Amino acid sequence: MNKRNRYLLIPAALLSIAAISACGTNSSKDADIALRVAYNQWVGSAGLFIADSKGYFKDAGIDVKLIEFASPTEATQALLSDNVDIALTTLDTAVMVKSNEASKNLKVFSLTDLSSGADGIVADKDIKTIADLKGKTVAATIGAVNHFLLDHALKQAGLSESDVKLSNVAPEQTGPLFMSGKVDAAVTWEPYLSQSMAKGGNLLFSTKEAPDLIIDGMVASENLIQDHGSEIRKLVDAIDKGTQFYYSDTDEAATIVGEKLDASKDDVKSMMDGVKLIPQSEVKLKMTDGLSSLEQHAQDFSSFFLDKKLIKNDIKAPDLFDNFLYQ
């Protein structure tokens, strides 16, 4: 199991179609509802998988139906068309959706995990620093979050995209392309980072140095938050219980997650080396005292997408978040 599906983009035209489509709505205030939660196969959703497997949702008195999609993109499209109520997605996806959706007023209301070393830039052994990338060929995916990571690292080194030769390839091809010797460097993720370094590559930059740069959370419509805030709170608490279980009984937890991802227990543990599941005690800090930092990351994504002509409208980052759970 790798991470390639997290790097897919959302075509604006599809968002426009999805935004005006409405079927199977589940946002009325009537009594109990079954919360339909969209997810894709990503190890950072471990808390969700464990909560479902261990019966934590049932214990909390809520009915939760997990619906799998191929990527955060597809999960979000299902949210826009009312086929699900909540989507686990990446912050960059949420920003792009917010820019294009017209009526749902989608909100990021909680966080689940962040990349803490699972994504990075690897280069030939003779390339020692990001500054050394000047004039070199770097594999990335234009408009994807790996492209954003490259842009961030270059700026920190006083360079820009024009200082490198960008080889635009599909996200899952960047690491293998580097290992085949066809490019000087690549922006990729685990397991490709470790595989590349095992072959003599240098890790120039990773999300360990920018841990809030690639972050995942939960998104819902403003109406669902207003009408079913208590159920959402129970959902988040149950997922948090799953997160805590991962760190308290990692062997059993990794087995549960592996069953969901079609991966071995050891593979799950390896994938988790560069991922941090965020307990709600830390989410609260990020969504209150640290909210301005999250908003800045969201605004940076928006500016990046706008500059690359992937979106037509810049977002107002404060409108993207709703921290009602942490008031």
Score class of each variant (00 low, 15 high):
82 D>P: 07
306 L>H: 14
296 Q>L: 08
143 G>A: 08
40 N>K: 09
317 A>K: 04
125 K>S: 15
78 A>R: 14
51 A>C: 02
98 K>M: 04
128 K>V: 11
46 A>Q: 03
192 Y>I: 01
63 D>N: 14
186 A>P: 06
100 N>M: 13
224 L>E: 08
75 A>W: 12
225 I>S: 05
299 Q>D: 11
26 N>V: 07
154 L>R: 09
276 K>P: 02
5 N>I: 06
298 A>D: 10
175 G>F: 02
48 L>I: 08
136 K>T: 04
89 T>D: 13
313 N>G: 00
229 G>E: 05
101 E>Q: 13
115 S>E: 15
311 I>P: 13
251 D>C: 00
203 L>Q: 04
1 M>A: 01
261 L>W: 01
193 L>S: 03
314 D>V: 04
80 L>W: 10
326 Y>V: 00
26 N>C: 11
156 Q>M: 13
250 T>F: 00
45 S>V: 04
110 S>A: 10
210 A>T: 15
54 K>F: 02
160 S>T: 15
106 L>P: 01
103 S>Q: 07
229 G>Q: 06
115 S>V: 15
100 N>E: 14
20 I>V: 12
121 I>L: 11
120 G>C: 14
11 P>H: 10
123 A>E: 09
148 F>S: 15
119 D>G: 09
239 I>P: 05
8 L>V: 12
153 A>Y: 09
118 A>E: 10
147 H>V: 06
181 G>F: 06
142 I>Q: 00
12 A>V: 14
174 T>M: 01
107 K>T: 05
243 T>V: 12
132 D>Q: 06
272 M>K: 03
97 V>Q: 14
296 Q>Y: 04
121 I>R: 07
287 M>T: 02
149 L>T: 15
27 S>A: 12
92 D>T: 15
139 A>G: 02
148 F>I: 15
234 K>V: 05
12 A>F: 07
236 V>A: 04
126 D>G: 09
217 G>L: 07
189 W>L: 10
305 F>R: 12
71 S>L: 08
42 W>M: 12
289 D>K: 06
111 L>D: 01
278 I>H: 01
221 S>G: 13
9 L>Q: 12
204 L>H: 05
250 T>Q: 05
188 T>W: 01
1 M>Q: 00
305 F>H: 15
310 L>Y: 14
200 G>L: 09
167 S>Y: 04
177 L>F: 09
19 A>W: 05
264 S>G: 05
7 Y>V: 07
239 I>T: 05
52 D>P: 01
22 A>F: 06
120 G>N: 13
139 A>L: 03
226 Q>I: 11
17 I>G: 07
211 P>G: 10
232 I>S: 05
34 A>K: 13
217 G>Q: 06
247 Y>E: 02
133 L>M: 11
266 D>T: 00
103 S>N: 08
44 G>W: 07
152 H>Y: 15
245 F>C: 02
109 F>E: 01
313 N>K: 08
197 M>N: 00
